[in-house]
Every structure is written in C-alpha cells, then in structure tokens.
C-alpha cells in the first residue's frame, strides 16, 4: 500500500498550476484534499506520473455568498463550507448534505470542489450541484469557461473537464425565496457511502406547492435533478401524498447492486427517501414563509 513513484508539483498560483497541467496532460492528476485520490494511489489503482498539488495555490480557499449564488473555491474544505454561517443562511441544503459527507476528519481535509470534480455519483456534493442547477468554473492555460452542471457530469467518475483544466470553483445557485430543502441518506454505517440518498427542494406559494425537485446519491450514473412539480403542483403540503412521485423516481434512477445492497433495495430506499425529504422540505418551506411573516409583522 505504497504509491508508485510520481513527480510532485506544488504551484503557488492558478497560472502555474494550469501551466503544469498543460505540460503533463493525461499523465497528471490534481491533488486537493486527497481523500479519494491518496487511497487510490496507495492501492496502486492509479499511478499518475505527475501530481499537481494545488494546496499552496493562493486565492482558492474562499466561500462567497451573493444574492443568487454560493461560490466555493477549489481549496474550501467540506468542514469550512459546513460551518460557514452565511452560506448556511443562503442555502441550508449545503449544510444539510455536508454533515453526511463521511466523517469530520475527512471533511476537515476533503474539498467540496474536489468531490464534485471526482464525479462519484455516490458523493453527496455532486448531487447538490445538480439540485441547485450549479456551475463549475474551469481554467486552463489558454482559456476560462463556465460549465453548467447538465454539461459537467458525463458518466461514472467522468466529467467534461479536460486534462489541461483546473476546476477553480463551483457555484451553487440559491433557491427562490420560500423554498424548503431536505437531504437524507441511508448508509450501512454512519458516514459510509450511502446506499441511497435524496435531496429535495420544495417551494410553496400562497400555501400551495409551487415547485418540487429532487436529486439523488448512489442510484444514478451521473448526478442530475428530477423535477416532480407536476405531481404536486397546487396541492396543500399538509394533505399531499408525498409518495405520489414514486413512479417518476423509479423512472429516473438506475441503481446498481453491490455487496452492500441490491438494486431493488436501493430503488426502494430512493422512493422512500424521496417521500420523506419532500415532506420535510415542504414543512421547511411553510416554516420559512411563517418566519418571513413573523419578521415582517412588526414592520408592517
């Protein structure tokens, strides 16, 4: 369990980093938090000739919150984002999901952007990018571009990033006011990769369901979101049957069995978690309206 020899590059700037990537191409691999990459190297499942370690690169460790987005730099650790109160206020979903990302020691080191660039559909954060309809910012020696989430994930562990590109940040889009969110997953042990996980965003308007979306962990090839508004639109969140999206969920997922759970079991979990997260997201949406009314109350 020792990695094969590699050249370690430690650039200090994005420009230096992408210059190295341009030079080494397919022989290079970006090292950020290393929580997935280092075990892979130690088990010699991959032996890249060059590691481009971006931990010394300046300017990648910020979380910035705007009216529309939460922008997360490539060196922001999961724990940093998890504990970022402004980000939580803007997009509670992130913390709701992040507490499920492995264990605290892994979150202390692992990065949110790294998790998304790794594109493991068993990871929580790719599914969050999908549900928020987010964007990946990519930089290469020759160009910069923004990649919409729909164009980013291409397959299991595959993205549209080229070997020359560095993902310098991701931007999670904030939901419309009055949206409630929820994330739940089921793993064999606390902190393990989920057998299935579901994120839900529900917006109510004038006491009725206006918008409902889901995204999934571990039951799809690529992270993507599923709009289930048509099933619930116009209904009252207190009386709606949240299991009514089951057919849509079944149609949207393609779970695979492994030694921990069969495909059928994962599908059952996805349907059940969709029901639970939709209900919780709706309750939060209703509560958000209530809070808004309460805080506006005295001023009105």
């Amino acid at each position: 369990m020792k990695p094969a020899p590699f050249v370690h590059h430690a650039p200090r700037s994005v420009a230096d980093a992408v210059a190295v990537l341009a030079e080494v191409g397919h022989d290079g691999k970006v090292l950020a938090g290393g929580q997935s990459l280092i075990p892979i190297l130690n088990m010699r499942l991959a032996s890249p000739a060059h590691l481009v370690d971006i931990n010394q690169v300046a300017g990648l460790a910020d979380v910035t919150v705007s009216d529309t987005e939460v922008r997360v730099g490539a060196l922001v650790r999961h724990a940093q984002l998890e504990h970022h109160d402004e980000a939580y206020a803007a997009l509670p979903l992130l913390r709701q999901a992040l507490v499920n990302v492995a264990h605290p020691v892994i979150r202390n080191r692992g990065t949110t952007v790294g998790s998304i660039a790794h594109a493991d559909a068993a990871g929580e954060m790719p599914a969050m990018l999908a549900l928020t309809d987010g964007v990946v910012e990519a930089v290469s020696a020759s160009a910069s571009r923004e990649i919409a989430v729909a164009d980013f994930f291409e397959g299991a562990l595959e993205t549209s990033l080229t070997p020359e590109e560095l993902a310098v940040a991701v931007r999670f889009r904030r939901f419309a006011a009055g949206t409630g969110t929820s994330f739940m997953e089921r793993a064999r042990r606390h902190g393990d990769y989920a057998m299935a996980g579901v994120a839900a965003a529900v917006r109510t308007s004038d006491g009725l369901i206006a918008d409902a979306r889901l995204s999934f962990v571990s039951v799809t090839d690529v992270p993507r979101s599923l709009d289930v508004t048509e099933v619930f639109a116009g209904q009252e969140p207190e009386s709606v049957d949240w299991s009514a999206a089951a057919d849509l969920v079944h149609a949207a997922i393609e779970p695979e069995g492994d030694i921990h759970a069969t495909a059928e079991y994962r599908a059952m979990l996805a349907v059940e978690l969709a029901r639970l997260t939709l209900a919780q997201a709706a309750r939060r949406s209703v509560a958000a309206h209530q809070v808004a009314r309460d805080t506006e109350g005295p001023a009105a």
């Binding site: 075990p39 042990r189 606390h190 902190g191 393990d192 990769y193 030694i259 921990h260």
Partner: peptide
C-alpha cells in the same frame, strides 16, 4: 475477497 478494505468490510463505528 471482494471487500478487502475498511471501506467495504464493515466494522461497526462507535456510532453503530
């Protein structure tokens, strides 16, 4: 042996 690592051989954590 398909689960020859602590990722797939599930020893209970304190939480279990």
């Amino acid at each position: 042996l398909l689960n020859a690592s602590f990722m797939d051989f599930l020893m209970p954590y304190a939480s279990e």
